[in-house]
Every structure is written in structure tokens, then in C-alpha cells.
């Protein structure tokens, strides 16, 4: 049975049995090679579920919005890591949220595809095995999916299988160095790094798509929305936009599960993943702490070890 068929059957059964009231998954979207979240409440709706490489939002974001319902979440490693953090932060407990683990071999990158097609917008597209097939009025391209994966997929980490309550297939993420992007950025001198950061932030229009798409940005009121008094100015001032992004990154220190939803959500191509990677690596190297993997620990910056390194303190 295909993953989609298995998924639909599982979801339909969970809904019919009354085990859950809502299944959060994806369905085919309105644009070629895109999916959209599906909030299925009936077995009939659940029949539209899909899980493949075009699913590129982190669905866990909806769990904090439907917090009074018993929910099944279609989960790839991105969602699974988020669930680990949700358990740690008491946002979701196994008696309310049930995960349906679907296999993932990496997400199709819309940006990589657009670059590969050099501006041609496919009018139709589909996945066929390991091929991405897209076409316009008078052209067709058959491209290997493995050349068009999201950067976050390389070296993707899977939490222990105990996090998946129903596993429909095994994930095989592409091997690679998660920190390659970070290393590239760090090769630059401080001045160049600042200039690169400025160039990225200058493009930001403060639409907060990154924050809203982020499953770990679930604060009822974001610091950047504080208006009495104002914490961060809301104008196009570059420093204010920096303050927003830096503070958001810090709030995600040891919490970011590196799903890349923020980067994919950005409508103007601001990519600040390397900021989160920087803190992710700091958490791992300095505190042996890996967000999204070990739920037993207390949150990174809510605790300490007496022997935490402090070479930077006078």
C-alpha cells in the first residue's frame, strides 16, 4: 500500500473511532508542486491527505491553535522534533496529540526549482518516484528530486521512534553536513558578516511570516508586538529589523528544531537560517544539548550545570 493510502486509511480510522477529533495533515495545493495544510474532521476529508516531498510547512504550528481538541498530527522528522520540544515545554502531551509518522526523504525546495527553471513558472507539476516533472505550455523538465532538496534536509536528524505513535514508514533523509551553510558564513571576516547580515535584513518587510510559520514562536504576544511601551520600532529602520531578528533568534536558542519553515515562508527571500544554526551548534558543543531530540532534559536556558563553561566571563 502506498504511503498516501496508508495515511488516509489510518486517519479515517482514527476519526471514525473517535480517537481524535481532528487530523492535521497536508493536501494537494492550488499551485503546481505545492501542498496546503488540511484540517480533516471527517473520514471523507481525510481521504484528501497526502504526504510527499512537496509538503513543506511545519504542521506542528497548528497544535498550539487547536489546544482543546484531541488531534492527530501527520509528522515527518521536522514535526517529530517539534513534538519533542512541545512535550518539553508542555505544549502538547501524548494523551492529547497523536503522531502519524510518515516517511520523508527530503523536501522539494521551491527556490531551488525556480532557480533551476531560470524563471519559468511551471503550469503543472508532479512527483514521479525520484523525479520532479514540471511543464509549461511548450516545455517539460524531468529533474532528479535529489538535486532540488531544501538545505535543511541535509543531515536532518530524527528523534527516537518512541515519539511516533503510529509509524507508517521509515524516513531516509539525505546525508550531509548540517552546518555547511554556517561554515560558509563564518569564513567571512566580522565586517563582511555584518554587511551580509545587513543585506539580508534590508530585504525584510516585517510581515512576520517567519514568526507565524515557526512552530516554536507560539507566544500569545510577541515582544515585537509590545506597544505599551514599544520594545521594537515597527518602521523600516534597519536596526529595528535587526533587533527583531536577533531577539527572535535568541528566543529560539536551544528551541529551534531547524525545520526551515521560517525561510520557506518568507515572501521576499530573507534567509537567516545561519543565525539559528549558530546557536544550535553552540547548544550542542557548549552544553551537549540537541533541540528536538532528547525530551528528557529541561529547556536549555531554563537550567544550568554547575560546570558550564565560562571562559568568556571575567
Amino acid at each position: 500500500m502506498s504511503v498516501n493510502a496508508l495515511l488516509r486509511e489510518t486517519a479515517a480510522r482514527l476519526l471514525a473511532e473517535g480517537t481524535v477529533r481532528l487530523v492535521v495533515g497536508w493536501e494537494k495545493g492550488t499551485l503546481p508542486l505545492r501542498t496546503t495544510p488540511l484540517l480533516a474532521r471527517t473520514a471523507e476529508q481525510a481521504d484528501r491527505l497526502v504526504a510527499d516531498a512537496t509538503c513543506d510547512q511545519n504542521l506542528a504550528v497548528y497544535l498550539t491553535r487547536f489546544k482543546d481538541e484531541k488531534v492527530a498530527l501527520v509528522a515527518r522528522p521536522c514535526e517529530a522534533r517539534t513534538l519533542v520540544e512541545y512535550c518539553r515545554e508542555h505544549r502538547a502531551s501524548p494523551d492529547r496529540v497523536l503522531a502519524i509518522g510518515v516517511p520523508c526523504t527530503g523536501m522539494l525546495s521551491r527556490r531551488a526549482l525556480e532557480r533551476r527553471l531560470s524563471g519559468r513558472l511551471p503550469a503543472a507539476g508532479r512527483l514521479e518516484g525520484d523525479l520532479v516533472i514540471c511543464s509549461g505550455e511548450d516545455w517539460e523538465e524531468r529533474l532528479p528530486l535529489t538535486d532540488l532538496l531544501e538545505p535543511v534536509c541535509y543531515g536532518c536528524r530524527l528523534p527516537g521512534a518512541d515519539r511516533y505513535w503510529r509509524v507508517l514508514g521509515e524516513s531516509r533523509p539525505p546525508a550531509g553536513d548540517r552546518y555547511a551553510e554556517l561554515d560558509r558564513f563564518r569564513q567571512m571576516a566580522g565586517e563582511e558578516r555584518y554587511a551580509a547580515f545587513c543585506r539580508a535584513v534590508e530585504r525584510c518587510i516585517r510581515c512576520y511570516a517567519c514568526r507565524q510559520a515557526c512552530p516554536m514562536c507560539y507566544c500569545p504576544e510577541c515582544f515585537s508586538d509590545r506597544s505599551a511601551p514599544t520594545w521594537v520600532g515597527s518602521s523600516d529602520d534597519l536596526s529595528d529589523t535587526m533587533v527583531f531578528h536577533l531577539t527572535r533568534t535568541l528566543h529560539l536558542a536551544g528551541r529551534c528544531v531547524d525545520c526551515g519553515a521560517c525561510v520557506r515562508a518568507c515572501p521576499v527571500g530573507v534567509d537567516l537560517r545561519h543565525l539559528h544554526l549558530r546557536l544550535g551548534r553552540e547548544a550542542e558543543e557548549r552544553f551537549a544539548y540537541r533541540p528536538g531530540l532528547d525530551a528528557a532534559d529541561r529547556p536549555l536556558v531554563a537550567t544550568f550545570r554547575p560546570d558550564d563553561p565560562e571562559e568568556f566571563i571575567r
Partner: peptide, 25 residues
């Protein structure tokens, strides 16, 4: 609205959306 994330990508990139806020700095 259920799927809506509540960001302003649609409004800020809309050519006709014109709402604004007035602030003093």
C-alpha cells in the same frame, strides 16, 4: 481562516492594501 498563519505577507505584497499605523519615535 483556519489554515491562515496570521502573517502579513499577503497584505504587505498586495498592491491595493493600504492600512497604516501612526507612531512617534
Amino acid at each position: 481562516h483556519e489554515r491562515c498563519l496570521g502573517c502579513a505577507a499577503c497584505t504587505y505584497l498586495c498592491p491595493t492594501c493600504h492600512c497604516f499605523d501612526i507612531v512617534d519615535e
